[in-house]
Write a protein that binds this DNA or RNA. Structure first.
Length: 422
RNA sequence: GGGGGGGUUCCCGAGUGGCCAAAGGGAACAGACUGUAAAUCUGUCGGCGAACGCCUUCGGAGGUUCGAAUCCUCCCCCCCCCA
């Protein structure tokens, strides 16, 4: 366990960093945390084989827990994913097949491994699948054992449910709260877990779990929620040009991931440094004092730190160098980290290939119509030169230094790496 | 089960037989400005096509009509009230 967190207690750090939204019993939790190694958990949804930036906040919550000598548990909701979660959603979540969920679990597990230390030690994290204790549990058995512990009146009063009343809420979604409460109770019973954390939208579910653990296990357990993360612009965390920003490099390249953080709103930098990096308070405060264009320095630190934690220092440095090459002016620089794809030299013989087609199949643009529009708007460049001819083709003449640099707008870059040139 | 109101392009939301690929707003993207930020202004915003245009889309399936998002039939889903 590392001790150089710069904070005396977990809760102090969580507060300073901006994770602290609401706590079921702060004083009692504070005492508990200073008295023993506390096991705390957060649930993640295996709805895809990768987590995205939106999950980074809870992940960091577990990271801090572990850094302060406590034990994190990550629950992947294999069972709950089969059911769907009403909280904050307007639509019934798509149900997944068991095989798909299994596959997603593996991917997520690998990603959490970048952040948390798992193992058998006292403070080593655990990753559990709630399907293990839910999937063979019979309906009648559940009703008989636990049904009387839940008050429908109370459930209906939960904000998460109330907000869904207008648009409709199926019974299956309504049950999500019960399952999550059950998870907490089981974790408390079997693993001594006494803390559940989560986004503020999980508050109701967490409270249900606290109640159930008290009634069934006669244990006092706690809940701690994080604020709902929105960008300064009021959009959901983790959306970029290409959609969601994923943690998996196959879905969001290291370059794009790094760019996401470099491009955050000025107003978000300070907050994000606190939430998404492990930098000590002195370093962060120093960066926070920057103003005007100097804020870019803080963004560089933010992007590097966050990228390095996920993809490793080397990859983060490469992404930073690519960014420098593309945006640092003066051109040149290291092209290694710039997204690209390989093309055989033969493609560029004679008339070559059309620019429009290439923009589409390089993934830079979605359709030929869009490619045409972009060219009309003077947004497309080949090797830095603005292209105005929609009919333009790429030929051997465009190859420079073994590659052709394509660019759409100011920020989207793609290099065609020419192979077979000998 | 009965009655009423709904399901429109990424989202919200107009549109009730041709002038609708479908108003308006938001989001998004691009250009200018800038600091790879914000704000602002301008433009774009289903697919194919150089273009005339063609194709796909208005919950689903049929039908009426020269012509349907708009009319009819059946089906699915949601909301409200009653049972």
């Amino acid at each position: 366990m590392r001790s150089e967190t710069g904070f005396t207690t977990f809760l102090d750090e969580m507060k300073w960093r901006g994770f602290f939204e609401q706590c079921s019993d702060e004083d009692a939790l504070y005492d508990l945390l200073s008295a023993e190694t506390v096991t705390g958990y957060i649930g993640f949804d295996p709805t895809a084989d990768s987590l995205h930036v939106g999950s980074l906040l809870p992940i960091m919550g577990l990271v801090h827990l572990q850094r302060h000598g406590h034990r994190p548990i990550a629950i992947v909701g294999g069972a709950t994913a089969m059911v769907g979660d009403p909280t904050g959603r307007t639509e019934l979540r798509r149900m997944l097949t068991l095989e798909k969920i299994e596959e997603n679990l593996l991917g997520i597990k690998g990603q959490l491994g970048h952040y948390l230390r798992f193992g058998d030690g006292l403070q080593d994290g655990l990753m559990l699948n709630n399907a293990d204790w839910l999937k063979d549990f019979g309906y009648l058995e559940f009703l008989r054992e636990f049904g009387h512990h839940f008050s429908v009146n109370q459930m209906l009063a939960r904000d998460s449910v109330k907000s869904r009343m207008e648009h409709g809420l199926s019974f299956i979604e309504f049950n999500y709260m019960l399952l999550q409460a059950f998870d907490f109770m089981v974790l408390n019973r079997d693993h001594g877990c006494k803390l559940q954390m989560g986004g503020s939208d999980q508050w109701g579910n967490i409270c249900s779990g606290i109640d159930l653990a008290r009634r069934v296990n006669r244990q006092e357990v706690f809940g701690l929620t994080f604020p709902l993360m929105m960008t300064a612009a009021g959009t959901k965390m983790g959306k970029s040009a290409g959609g969601a920003v994923w943690l998996a490099a196959e879905r969001t390249s290291v370059h794009d991931f790094y760019q996401y953080w470099i491009n955050v709103d000025d107003r978000d930098v300070a907050r994000f440094l606190r939430l998404y990096t492990l930098l000590p308070p002195e370093s962060i405060e120093k960066l926070e004092s920057l103003t005007g264009a100097d804020i870019r320095e803080a963004k560089r630190v933010l992007a590097h730190e966050v990228t390095a934690m996920l993809h490793g220092d080397a990859a983060a440095t490469e992404a930073a160098e690519a960014a420098q090459a593309l945006f640092g002016g003066g051109g040149g620089g290291d092209a290694e980290g710039i997204p690209g794809s390989e093309r055989p030299l033969a493609d560029f013989d004679g008339d070559g290939v059309t620019l429009i087609d290439t923009l589409v199949d390089s993934g830079l643009l979605g359709s030929k119509g869009e490619a045409r529009r972009m060219i009309r708007q003077k947004a497309v460049r080949i090797n830095g030169e603005v292209i105005v001819d929609e009919m333009r083709s790429l030929t051997a003449d465009d190859i420079s230094d073994g590659r052709i640099a394509l660019q759409v707008g100011k920020k989207r870059h793609h290099h065609l790496i020419i192979t077979g040139a000998g």
